[in-house]
């Protein structure tokens, strides 16, 4: 069993290891080891087009993550906290549809809609599409957290002490849910940043995201630069995932602290007028 697991993970990590090793290989053709070099990394740094595509991807991911997080927060609050209402199940199912849909369907669907409606393809249409793809991720992350906070009596306590529902939400629920909100936003950011298929179909002429740039590099010739780039991206991905993990695992402890502080504050406020 252990041997199998080792082989399984070796399979998963073989391409990553290859890419790491060959990013330092001083050879144009990727096969044999010709000695250590950092020149591919230096070349990345000088590649203006590449850096521009990186900037585009980052901007796109920021906008998409912001939209997806806001929409996800609102929707998941209603789904997790409101008493049952008609259409709840349907809405909840609808929110997971983008996860089930092959990306090529969304790509060509959006392409045919935009061309039919004569919507010009630009940065914003792409950002809207990315937000749609990322929405299930933010909604499910935030919803899980809101559901686990449901049993806490802190909001009731706050309202007993005279807070309105909105105040209780802003002072208690929102801070407690913040780690999950940030974690969801990070996930949405990653989803948008890595997206290739949808962008491939609906990025207009002038919009080159990083994955699209990588695709054209792969199409028009083999270059070890891709390995160097991939290593940088991998590092960034691991950092983001680690951050998300820490947020989620640290959330439990800090939630208790935050709750204590919130209650203390509320008690003080309630005591003041007296």
């Amino acid at each position: 069993m252990s041997a199998y697991i080792a082989a399984f993970y070796a399979f998963l990590y073989a391409p990553l290891a290859v890419m790491f090793v060959f990013s330092f290989n001083d050879a144009r053709r990727n096969v044999a080891w010709k000695g250590f070099t950092l020149k591919w990394y230096a070349q990345l740094w000088r590649d203006g087009e590449l850096l521009r595509s990186l900037a585009t991807s980052l901007e796109l991911a920021l906008v998409a993550a912001a939209i997806a997080t806001l929409l996800g927060l609102l929707a998941s609050y209603a789904l997790a906290r409101h008493p049952k209402f008609r259409g709840r199940q349907g809405c909840s199912a609808l929110l997971s549809v983008p996860l089930m849909m092959p990306e090529i369907v969304m790509g060509v669907g959006l392409l045919s809609l935009f061309s039919r409606a004569r919507v010009p393809l630009n940065f914003w249409t792409l950002a809207c599409a990315h937000a749609m793809i990322a929405l299930p991720y933010t909604a499910s992350a935030i919803r899980a957290r809101l559901l686990s906070l449901k049993d806490s009596r802190l909001e009731d306590a706050a309202m007993d002490l005279g807070a309105t529902e909105w105040q209780a939400f802003r002072k208690i629920t929102l801070p407690l849910a913040r780690p999950a909100i940030v974690a969801g936003a990070l996930l949405a950011f990653t989803v948008s940043f890595e997206d290739f298929v949808t962008s491939f179909f609906i990025a207009g002429i002038g919009i080159v995201t990083l994955p699209i740039k990588i695709y054209s590099m792969m199409k028009f010739g083999v270059t070890p630069e891709i390995n160097a780039l991939a290593c940088c991206l991998l590092l960034a991905t691991v950092a983001l995932l680690a951050l998300r993990q820490r947020l989620l695992s640290g959330a439990q402890e800090r939630a208790a602290d935050a709750a204590d502080r919130a209650l203390e504050g509320a008690a003080r406020q309630a005591a003041e007028p007296a």
């Binding site: 929707a75 929110l95 669907g109 809207c128």
Partner: peptide, 26 residues
Amino acid sequence: RKSSYALLAPAVLWLALFLIIPVACL
């Protein structure tokens, strides 16, 4: 119930606009 729909409306509209209508169009 209206408050639930108000909170869900942006997400549902977004999905309708960028997922359902494109697929229907297709």
